[in-house]
């Protein structure tokens, strides 16, 4: 009997204690809601921002290949923007050479079809010379920039590699922050010695239109 009383008493005590604890907990929760504003007190760092310094693109254009007529061709481009003025740029492009000046006169073909394939790559440093805006109409303006590029690379032509210097200038219109159209003219200069031609420095001028996306 005594044991039963004891158990009853203890369980009653326990239940009471629990209720008190629960009540205290509830009060605390309500107080928390009142005292703490519903706002996140977080700290902001520059690193939390998404950066968009890389650019990737494709272009299509015409290259005049010295002594070998000219042709349309395409290329790929990647760039890293170091700051608002300078960027690093990599290009790769392909063209097919036409008939040479020697062949036009009725001579034998100087190169096979495979040897007429011209491909190049170059690593350039670019400089945004004139950034600004162009107004299409009273209310529509796009950001634009005129830029210069210079660098070096390699040209593969007639199954031979040529160390090539590149110089160029272009104009770019940003349709949005991250999408732009470009037009540029570049000169690819290298020293060439091919069968039937004297050793000389040649200039292959190319004009391209391109689309680029920042990411």
């Amino acid at each position: 009997m005594e044991i039963r009383f004891q158990r009853l008493f203890l369980s009653a005590l326990c239940a009471l204690g629990c209720t008190v604890a629960q009540a205290q907990d509830d009060t605390q929760r309500v107080l928390d809601k009142i005292v703490t504003p519903d706002m996140e007190r977080r700290h902001i760092e520059e690193d939390q921002l998404d950066t968009e310094d890389f650019e990737i693109g494709a272009y299509y254009g015409f290259m005049s290949i010295e002594d070998f007529s000219g042709s349309w061709g395409w290329g790929l481009r990647g760039a890293y923007h170091i700051n608002e003025d300078f960027f690093l740029e990599v290009n790769y492009g392909q063209h097919t050479a036409g008939i040479s000046t020697l062949e036009i006169g009725g001579g034998l073909p100087a190169l096979t079809d495979a040897e007429r394939e011209l491909s190049y790559y170059d690593l350039n440093l670019g400089y945004n010379l004139f950034p600004g805006e162009v107004f299409i109409s009273d209310n529509l303006a796009f950001n634009s920039t005129f830029y210069l590029v210079g660098g070096a690379g390699n040209t593969t032509f007639a199954d031979t590699q040529f160390f090539t210097y590149t110089l160029g200038a272009g104009y770019k219109i940003y349709l949005t922050d991250y999408f732009d159209l470009s037009v540029d003219v570049r000169d690819h200069v290298y020293e060439r010695e091919l069968l039937g031609f004297n050793k000389k420095w040649v200039n292959n001028l190319s004009t391209n239109i391109g689309v680029n996306v920042f990411f």
Binding site: I44, L49, D50, T51, E52, I82, N83, E84, D177, F214
Partner: peptide, 11 residues
């Protein structure tokens, strides 16, 4: 609101 960053500029 800060949106994104390009080189030394923040949108």
């Amino acid at each position: 609101t800060l949106l994104k960053k390009r080189t030394d500029w923040v949108k």
